[in-house]
């Protein structure tokens, strides 16, 4: 599955996107965050406070308890600051 990072999450992870294959017991957004946080020190820093990380599954906002599928595009980013 494809994971995208924006703004300071991208800066900390060091990637704008990556292809990952989480294990089958990683099924929700919250579980994916916990799993991704282990991938590198940068990932750990990006996800240090999951409460300030926003997520979208296939370009729609998703909460921590929501489930994703293997082919989904999952994006992580800070609270938005447009306008």
């Amino acid at each position: 599955m494809k994971v995208l990072y924006f703004a300071w999450l991208r800066d900390r992870v060091g990637l704008s996107e990556e292809i990952v294959e989480p294990p089958v017991d990683v099924a929700t957004v919250g579980e994916l965050i916990a799993w991704l946080a282990q991938r590198s020190p940068g990932h750990g820093e990006a996800f240090a406070d999951p409460t300030i990380v926003r997520c979208a599954i296939n370009q729609d906002y998703a909460k921590a308890h929501e489930r994703f599928n293997a082919g989904d595009e999952v994006a992580f980013f800070p609270p938005v600051t447009g306008g």
Binding site: A56, P78, V80, T81, G82
Partner: peptide
Amino acid sequence: MDWLKTKAPFWKL
């Protein structure tokens, strides 16, 4: 404008 500011995925640097 109020909803755009909290929902549209833009980030200012």
